[in-house]
């Protein structure tokens, strides 16, 4: 018998429908409650994991070795110990507790990690944007960067399959995120500032 740990009412990559998520030594699987295509992930692809507060409940974010992220939302606070053991014993990674900033400030530091752009406020993440969700970026003005999101032209719900909701997370809620603009000061040299074009 293979040991399996399962959790109900879990949302995969901001899916509209919840499902059952099951962890085993050889990997992870998620199946929508109403039936449909399952998503599976081999344990060898799990490169890291983070625990934090999300919209539906608590989130486990799996960082893939291939640089993507898988988001599982809907856990309860008291699931942490169980999940920490699962990740440590079966996948040899720590379930890192990532407390997010709740200050409500719009200034901080935009930082680029392997799979995501993180906006940190006082050294705590306020939000993250997985690169896979970005459809376009441009310099909207001097020191101003516009980040646009995929599928801004259609309102289709998340798909579940081999690549669940990739490039569709911005569209998951009733308020779909189209664009984020950042102001990054001091990125132009004096020379550019004097004679350059924005």
């Amino acid at each position: 018998m293979t040991a399996i740990e399962s959790f109900d009412n879990i949302y995969l990559d901001l899916s509209k429908e919840s499902g059952k998520s099951r962890f085993a030594e050889n990997g992870f699987g998620w199946k929508p409650a109403g039936g449909g295509e399952a998503y599976t992930l081999d344990s060898g692809e799990i490169g890291g994991a983070q625990w934090s507060r999300a919209a539906r409940g608590y989130e486990v974010k799996i960082l893939l070795r291939s640089s993507g992220v898988v988001q599982l939302d809907g856990f309860h606070q008291e699931d942490y110990e169980r999940l920490n053991k699962i990740f440590k014993n079966w996948y040899s990674v720590n379930l890192e507790n990532k407390e997010h900033s709740l200050r409500g400030w719009n200034w901080g530091k935009a930082e680029f990690s392997k799979a995501e752009l993180t906006f940190n406020v006082q050294n705590r993440p306020a939000f993250e944007i997985p690169y896979a969700e970005i459809s376009n970026t441009n310099l909207a003005g001097r020191n101003e960067i516009a980040v646009e999101f995929a599928g801004s032209d259609s309102g289709k719900s998340n798909g579940h399959g081999a690549t669940p909701g990739k490039g569709k997370k911005a569209l998951a809620g009733k308020d779909m995120l189209c664009e984020v603009r950042f102001y990054i000061p001091g990125t132009t040299t004096r020379k550019e500032a004097e004679g350059g074009e924005a």
Binding site: A110, F182, I184
Partner: peptide
């Protein structure tokens, strides 16, 4: 955010003008 030409300099509602800022978010 800085550089918007609004408000007096001494009344900027932020702590650190050399930080990065979220300037806008657009939803549909």
């Amino acid at each position: 955010s800085p550089g918007q030409g609004v408000g007096r300099k001494d009344e900027q509602p932020f702590e650190d003008a050399s930080a990065h800022f979220v300037r806008s978010l657009t939803f549909k």
